[in-house]
Amino acid sequence: MSNARATHFTRRGILAAGGALGLGAALTACGSDDENGGSADGKASAASGPWSFEDDRGTTVKLDQVPTSIVAFTGVAAALWDYGVQVKGVFGPTTTKDGKADVQAGDMDVSKVTVLGNAWGKFNVEKYAALAPEVLITTTFDDAGTLWSVPEESKDKIAKLAPSVAVSVFDRQLTEPLQRMWELAESLGADMKADKTVQAKKDFEAAAERLRTAAKARPEIKVLAGSASPDLFYVSGTNLSVDLEYFKALGVNFVEPSEAAKKATGGWYESLSWENVDKYAADVIVMDDRTSATQPADITEGTWKKLPAVKAGQVISRSPEPILSYDKCTPLLTNLAEAIEKAKKVS
């Protein structure tokens, strides 16, 4: 992935930017809350009895017991960790070069999981088999239900080893996959009545109201969602991304590339050369925080440094692949609300 942004974006046109697709899915986990158990700290307890879960593809996975040998995409594992559910293995960006947790690993103790591949699309099938997986959990960024970060060339081998569950982060608003992850964690034995978990949801709702208020008070503030690679700058559209779609629904005024400009990427984003990075005027820029993207501090292009929002210090981070727990999504709302509240009108 030498040009991480470019290669990432061309994979089914997926991700510089993921909405409102009502894939209402039913969930059942046998046993009452008391039977599943619970704990004050929100740690998942050993749930018993048969387990079934209908995912956002409409696929229902049924097992004789609640799975404990779980393998998940890193960001999904991080969300489950926040709810007290421990996975055995992960795939996707997990540790940085110095061994610390990648931004997509959140608060997860990366020393307690087997890493099957430390980058998007990397997956060691032999290691996976050795874990005796009961279920694989990831997200999907398209309406075909393609499993995120599961490599095309080995997907059939992987599928034979354990059933999969997918949470859609395509063309729907952030609150929908958040609710689905909540339901999934609960089915896996998480105590959703734990003080920490209940408070996290309240904090998220308060942060959403703060962003709504800030956007309403300052509709003139234009926000651009960007992502950088060595060769190109990507301006995300809002109509497919779960975070941007939700922020837009709360009233945030986003720069929106034309449909024609986004056509080549399936509607996700517009690619700009660094010479044309000033094509759109913006007061606040939210930048892709993933390690596969060039981070703002490392951008040396003079055209970037001349942008009014950059000169004004009005650049914040964005998580195009948000960790789907209320605890991790609250700062995304709070940081954007604060940026809009404090922004100077520079565009």
Score class of each variant (00 low, 15 high):
168 S>V: 05
78 A>D: 02
31 G>Y: 01
162 A>C: 13
137 I>V: 03
101 A>N: 02
3 N>G: 15
86 Q>F: 14
55 D>E: 09
116 L>Y: 06
263 K>V: 13
250 L>A: 00
239 N>E: 04
64 D>G: 11
87 V>R: 00
250 L>N: 04
256 E>W: 02
22 G>H: 10
119 A>F: 00
21 L>K: 12
144 A>M: 14
50 P>I: 08
308 P>D: 14
209 E>V: 12
294 T>E: 05
322 P>E: 07
150 V>K: 11
217 A>R: 04
12 R>K: 07
200 A>E: 08
192 M>F: 01
25 A>L: 11
221 I>S: 02
110 V>T: 05
254 F>Q: 02
129 A>T: 10
294 T>P: 14
251 G>A: 11
3 N>L: 06
107 D>T: 13
344 K>P: 13
271 S>G: 07
169 V>G: 05
7 T>R: 10
121 G>E: 09
248 K>N: 05
303 T>P: 14
254 F>D: 00
130 A>C: 04
13 G>D: 01
45 S>L: 07
193 K>D: 11
188 L>Q: 01
263 K>L: 13
77 A>W: 00
182 W>H: 15
281 A>V: 08
26 A>T: 09
79 A>M: 03
48 S>F: 03
55 D>Y: 06
28 T>M: 09
13 G>N: 10
95 T>S: 14
244 L>C: 04
265 T>P: 05
87 V>E: 00
344 K>N: 14
41 D>I: 09
42 G>Y: 00
179 Q>N: 12
151 P>T: 03
147 L>I: 06
161 L>D: 10
234 Y>F: 13
53 F>Y: 06
292 S>V: 07
25 A>T: 02
122 K>I: 11
318 R>L: 11
159 A>K: 02
281 A>W: 09
173 Q>Y: 04
266 G>T: 08
128 Y>A: 04
113 V>L: 08
69 S>N: 11
26 A>Q: 03
213 T>H: 13
116 L>M: 05
146 T>G: 00
173 Q>M: 09
61 V>Q: 04
138 T>F: 01
24 G>V: 15
69 S>P: 12
79 A>P: 00
163 P>D: 03
120 W>F: 08
173 Q>H: 01
56 D>H: 03
132 A>V: 13
211 L>H: 00
257 P>M: 12
166 A>G: 01
208 A>L: 07
62 K>I: 12
205 E>C: 10
97 K>Y: 14
47 A>T: 03
258 S>F: 14
281 A>Q: 01
110 V>G: 06
315 V>N: 03
110 V>N: 02
41 D>W: 06
258 S>Q: 12
192 M>G: 03
85 V>F: 02
42 G>M: 03
251 G>S: 13
122 K>E: 11
102 D>W: 12
9 F>R: 05
81 W>M: 06
222 K>G: 11
276 N>C: 15
236 S>A: 07
93 P>Y: 00
259 E>V: 15
182 W>T: 13
52 S>V: 14
176 E>A: 15
336 L>W: 10
35 E>M: 10
347 S>L: 14
289 D>R: 11
271 S>H: 07
